[in-house]
Design a protein around this nucleic acid. Structure first.
Length: 194
DNA sequence: CACCCGATTATCT
DNA sequence: GATAATCGGGTGT
């Protein structure tokens, strides 16, 4: 259970997206409450891709995508939901990030249910807006460094069962469907769509 | 400042 | 599977 170093995120965005599967997102609230989940679904977005928020250049809202890798890029969408990305790209790329689309809940499940009341645990973190709500991820965490201990960071979890990876078209976009930059763990019940 | 729309979700049928 | 809800940010006037 080690924190993933910044160098991990300094590679081509789709590679990082694929390799984040099976890693663990840890959310610490008030230095005491620990919530965590295994990443089971991701998508890659980089600047030369019309579906990427950075495609039309840097703005106040997307600036994190252009800054140092290994930080959180969080955005608010459809008037309701926050979504979590981790900034990741190789040197030659000006901006890029990995959208965390779904988690398999591990620690603090009862607390997650308080942030996001739901009858079925399967409905707790199986979508980008859902997991942000369950882990209490808001714009306050914008730009947080996930390569050091703090309110939000990502670790490796060697005990997680080996799995197969499937890639395909990204979900919910109107441009850039050609590239297969969505990655998910085969047969995992917490993947948002199959 | 008005207009447009989106990397979603819940709630129907 | 179809669709309404909902609102901040980007764009252009």
């Amino acid at each position: 259970m080690k924190i993933i170093p910044r160098s991990f995120y300094m590679r081509a965005t789709p590679e990082v997206a694929r390799d984040l599967l099976g890693k663990k997102v840890v959310r610490v609230i008030n230095d005491t409450i620990i919530l965590s989940g295994i990443i089971v679904e991701t998508e890659a977005y980089e600047i030369n891709d019309p579906a990427c928020h950075a495609f039309r250049g840097q703005t106040t809202a997307n600036r994190a995508l252009f800054e140092t890798v290994g930080h959180a890029y969080i955005y608010f969408i459809y008037g309701n939901h926050f979504c979590l990305n981790v900034v990741a790209r190789e040197d030659v790329c000006k901006a890029g990030g990995v959208l965390i689309r779904a988690l398999e809940p591990v620690d603090g499940i009862e607390i997650m249910k308080q942030f996001r009341p739901t009858t079925s645990i399967k409905n707790l973190t199986n979508g980008p807006g859902k997991l942000a709500q369950a882990l209490h991820i808001t714009k306050e965490l914008y730009g947080v460094d996930v390569t050091h201990k703090g309110p939000l960071y990502i670790v490796s979890d060697e005990s997680y069962t080996p799995f197969s990876i499937i890639s395909g078209e990204r979900i919910g976009i109107s441009k850039g469907q050609e590239v297969p930059w969505r990655f998910y763990i085969k047969d995992n019940p917490f993947v948002s769509r199959r």
